[in-house]
Simulated scan of single mutants.
Amino acid sequence: MADKVEFEFDIVVSLPKGSDDEDVILDALFDVGCDDAVVGLGASGLVGLGFTRVGVDAELVISEAVKQVLAALPTGSQLREVKPDLVSLADVAARLQVTRQALQKRDMPPPSLGGLYRASEMLPALEDQPGKVRDALDAARGWFASASAAQKINARASLEQS
């Protein structure tokens, strides 16, 4: 049996117009079992949820969380993004608690889109780095462990919505 891993990921969902009652949203998320999420309601029409969940397979863990979230939210809500997928060096630096400049000095995979990097490609590159960057990876492994699954789920969501 495979070992369980702690996965860290964010889910961003758009809400249909007129369905942004924060109390209703928070109660509904709690009722479906998302009481472990950090919920962000700062951007009008969007809900962001940060999760840390344990499981064997990141795609299964994240997909289940997405299903829970969509079941709680009003009809017409749509998955916008699962993170981490495309990330900036600043995002990675914040996770590792190092400076962006520390990453700029190292060999990184090529950017994918608009200066953003695929988080799934970052971990192998960072594991090859000496010093503080590599030493900081343990604290961010759950985030990197979610990256490939986030990428797949985002691709499927994009295809379904097009």
Rank of each mutant, 00 (worst) to 15 (best):
A155Y: 05
V87L: 11
P111V: 01
D10T: 06
A119G: 02
K105I: 00
T75P: 14
L137W: 07
R134W: 00
K105H: 02
L96Q: 02
G18Y: 09
T52M: 15
V24S: 09
L60R: 12
D35Q: 02
V56F: 13
G45P: 04
V32M: 07
S112T: 05
K83M: 10
S146T: 07
A2F: 13
A149R: 01
E81P: 05
L41Q: 07
M122G: 04
M108N: 04
L159T: 12
G115C: 08
T52R: 15
P124D: 07
D35T: 00
D3V: 10
A43N: 14
P111E: 04
P110T: 11
L73A: 04
R100V: 01
Y117G: 08
G114I: 09
A72M: 03
A72Q: 06
G142I: 05
R100C: 02
I25Q: 06
M1E: 12
V38K: 15
S146A: 11
A136V: 00
A125W: 00
V54C: 08
E8D: 13
P130C: 05
L126Q: 05
A94I: 06
L46T: 02
G45C: 06
A147T: 07
A157V: 01
S120Q: 13
L137D: 11
A125Q: 01
L26Q: 08
E127M: 10
R100S: 03
V54R: 14
E127N: 10
S146N: 09
A72I: 02
V5C: 05
C34V: 01
A43H: 15
D85E: 09
L137H: 08
D138A: 12
A150N: 12
P110I: 10
K105Q: 10
T99G: 13
G131C: 02
A37G: 00
R53T: 13
D36A: 01
S63M: 01
L73T: 03
K105F: 00
P110C: 08
R100Q: 12
D138M: 09
G18C: 06
I62D: 04
L159F: 07
A28E: 03
D27M: 06
R80A: 04
D20A: 14
K4M: 12
R134L: 00
N154R: 06
L15S: 06
A94D: 14
E22F: 11
P130I: 04
F9E: 06
D31L: 11
S88P: 11
G42C: 07
L79E: 01
Q97N: 14
V24H: 09
V56A: 14
Q151D: 15
N154Y: 03
R118N: 14
F144T: 08
S44N: 14
V82G: 00
M1Y: 11
A119N: 05
F7P: 03
V54W: 08
P110V: 10
P84D: 00
V39N: 06
G131M: 02
L126S: 03
N154S: 07
C34I: 01
A37T: 00
G114P: 05
S162C: 09
R53I: 13
Q129V: 08
R156N: 08
P124H: 03
V13F: 13
L159V: 12
P124Y: 03
V32G: 09
V24P: 03
D128H: 15
S44A: 15
G33E: 07
V133I: 06
G50C: 05
R100P: 07
P16H: 07
A149K: 01
